[in-house]
Write a protein that binds this DNA or RNA. Structure first.
Lengths: 224, 224
DNA sequence: AAAGTTAATTATGAATTCATTATTCAGTCA
DNA sequence: TGACTGAATAATGAATTCATAATTAACTTT
């Protein structure tokens, strides 16, 4: 009898961390909004203890901000934060690209190519929803391919924080086309297993994403 | 009346996160050891609620491991973890080096040079304690110099996790000399404001640190 | 009516309590 | 003797309670 994977019943607070993080990333809980404990407890059917534990974790991850005796507010997405986050994310993706080239097996690369084609189809159809999905799958898979848990964890958190920015500015046609190009290049480099090249391409891809975002954002954000 | 900085009374759990993290990093709480809530509560003079909140945060930071209904254990420092963490840390330091070259002012660089000289003195005197301190000051200052909170946060956590490894293996004379050399180079590049160069040097410095560590570690660690 | 003050209400931080799960240990039987 | 069983104990997860700080509402006072 081989019971390798033991019963996996996550604790309440773990589930709550996941669910609340999703609510923040999916913009259900809006930036700046305060997070009323009682209300959430009622709607989620838990007591305050595990909820508050989850909020502490979320705060350490940067999704909410705690103020003593004033509870939690959803962290706002500032331009400054984006300008700080993207370079870090870019550095992580660069590393991921390098490692992925070395460590991924052929089947994995083929799966990425499949997601890549899905992405192209979504682009042709101008289906933003499907595009984002395929895009995320690709980046996710490349990170996984790096075989590095630490990298994966930190990337996951930063990527989630940045993902919220999609509610701030729409993807321009121009940027969209450029992104597709960049992905084509990345795909080529991955297949050629050009570690250094893919790393640099992924870094550049991120930084270009930031540029486009800041450009689309600039007018509306207070010039600080 | 300018009350820019409001009263800063951290909540209990925040203080606990700091203190417990220190206990782990300073090897007072040993890897694999379980963290008995009651005992800690008594010795710290707090109730279980804030302590448990702190443990959740520490778990999300990777310093402890939670098992449902079995409480928290201090995370062990495995070779695999080090081999995963250092490359990520190296990537962050590379970025920090690049940014620091661009953003630090002259006074800051001079202060780093002063720490650098302290470090050299400590090396001459073979004073490990003082060396570690000066070394940490330098790296800390370079990170600060990058003017990027996100980078700083993530670096801080990873650096703390890795710092625990110093209880696993001693710094060899050979490696120590090499590290000094690398720091000399870094100092030169910083003064020359060679962003790309400093970035690469810091990355290399980290990766060499890992090599030395793994070499010193290899015999004693169970071979995977 | 507007600004300021005080009382009532609400929300939060932390302690305590309760229920459940692990662990320990004595006892049983092969 | 040594492995198994089950009761007793201890530790944990979560709910509840309590004390205090923040917010709101009511009331003055001008």
């Amino acid at each position: 009898m081989n019971l390798t994977d033991s019963i996996n019943r996550p604790t309440l607070h773990e589930e709550l961390v996941e669910r609340l993080r999703n609510l923040v990333v999916e913009d259900v809980l809006k930036p700046g909004e305060k997070v009323p404990e009682k209300q959430l407890c009622d709607s989620l059917g838990v007591s305050r203890t595990p909820l508050r534990e989850a909020l502490k974790v979320l705060a350490s991850e940067g999704f909410v901000v705690l103020q003593a005796n004033r509870g939690a507010r959803v962290a706002s997405v500032t331009r400054e934060e984006l300008e700080n986050t993207f370079p870090v994310l870019a550095a992580l993706e660069q590393l991921a690209g390098e490692l992925a080239c070395q460590k991924m097996d052929v089947a994995e690369i083929q799966r990425i190519e499949s997601s890549h084609k899905d992405m192209l189809s979504a682009y042709e159809a101008r289906d933003r929803q499907a595009y984002f999905k395929a895009n995320q799958d690709i980046h996710q898979a490349l990170i996984k391919g790096a075989r590095n848990d630490i990298l994966e964890n930190h990337h996951k958190l930063l990527a989630a924080r940045v993902r919220r920015a999609r509610f701030l500015a729409n993807l321009s046609d121009e940027r969209w086309a450029q992104a597709i190009d960049e992905h084509e290049t990345m795909m080529e480099l991955l297949k050629a297993r050009d570690a250094d090249g893919l790393g640099k391409a992924m870094k550049l891809h991120m930084m270009n994403k930031l540029s486009a975002l800041v450009k689309a954002l600039k007018p509306e954000v207070t010039p600080r």
